[in-house]
């Protein structure tokens, strides 16, 4: 890995960690969630909650490569805002203060943002966090179906019966299916 690649890699990991810390804080299932202290120490996708950070990392290196500058500028503005308001970067703030910052982003009340605006930055990170939580695991997030298990979504089912559709209960007739399972067909062994 060249020095350039390493620096880009570090940026992507930092972007993903920052994104996860901003929008994913508290969003992941308890069983997979880690403490904010661990979040701060996160340096790779391996300990990313539910794989959200891994998803964003991969997306910024691929499908969303054109958003790298958006993330870079957004994170720089976020840290500038946090340093100005609390004398510390976002990841070093207490949970309470992180929540205050996120609320300010969500409501567009965080000052000093030009491009992206605070709300644009928050909305994008939020959307990408949701994608990482709920997209098929082949995209690197939704680890062990953590997102789908959280909300009760059975994945890529090919058929629902009239009884399924009229039931007032949670769906349990079939296991959760990923795209890989779908590609292998219905006869695969669990």
């Amino acid at each position: 890995m060249s020095e350039h690649d390493a620096s880009r890699r570090e940026f992507l990991v930092r972007a993903a960690v920052g994104a996860g810390a901003v929008a994913g804080a508290g969003l992941v299932p308890e069983t997979h969630a880690q403490t904010r202290e661990q979040d701060r120490k996160a340096k790779s996708e391996t300990n990313a909650p539910a794989g959200v950070l891994n998803y964003i990392d991969l997306a910024l290196a691929g499908a969303y490569a054109d958003l790298q500058d958006f993330y870079r500028r957004g994170l720089a503005q976020l840290d500038a805002y946090c340093r100005k308001t609390y004398n510390e970067p976002f990841v070093r703030l207490s949970a309470t203060r992180q929540d205050e910052v996120i609320t300010a982003l969500d409501e567009g009340k965080a000052g000093g943002f030009t491009w992206p605006t605070a709300q644009e930055f928050f909305n994008t990170i939020r959307t990408h966090t949701m994608e990482g939580m709920f997209a098929d695991p082949i995209y690197g997030g939704n680890k062990d179906f953590a997102g789908w298990r959280l909300v009760g979504f059975p994945g890529a089912q090919a058929i629902f019966t009239p009884a399924d559709m009229q039931s007032k209960q949670a769906f349990t007739r079939a296991p959760i299916l990923s795209l890989q399972a779908q590609a292998q067909g219905p006869t695969r062994k669990e």
Partner: peptide, 30 residues
């Protein structure tokens, strides 16, 4: 679930992020 998360605003009083939002989605997505 991506559609629900990006298109359905939570009820008044629940933010769009964080633990309360997670609990909302976990309880009501289905």
């Amino acid at each position: 679930p991506i559609g629900a998360a990006v298109s359905m605003n939570p009820p008044p009083g629940i933010p769009r992020w964080g633990g309360a939002y997670r609990d909302f989605l976990a309880k009501y997505f289905a």
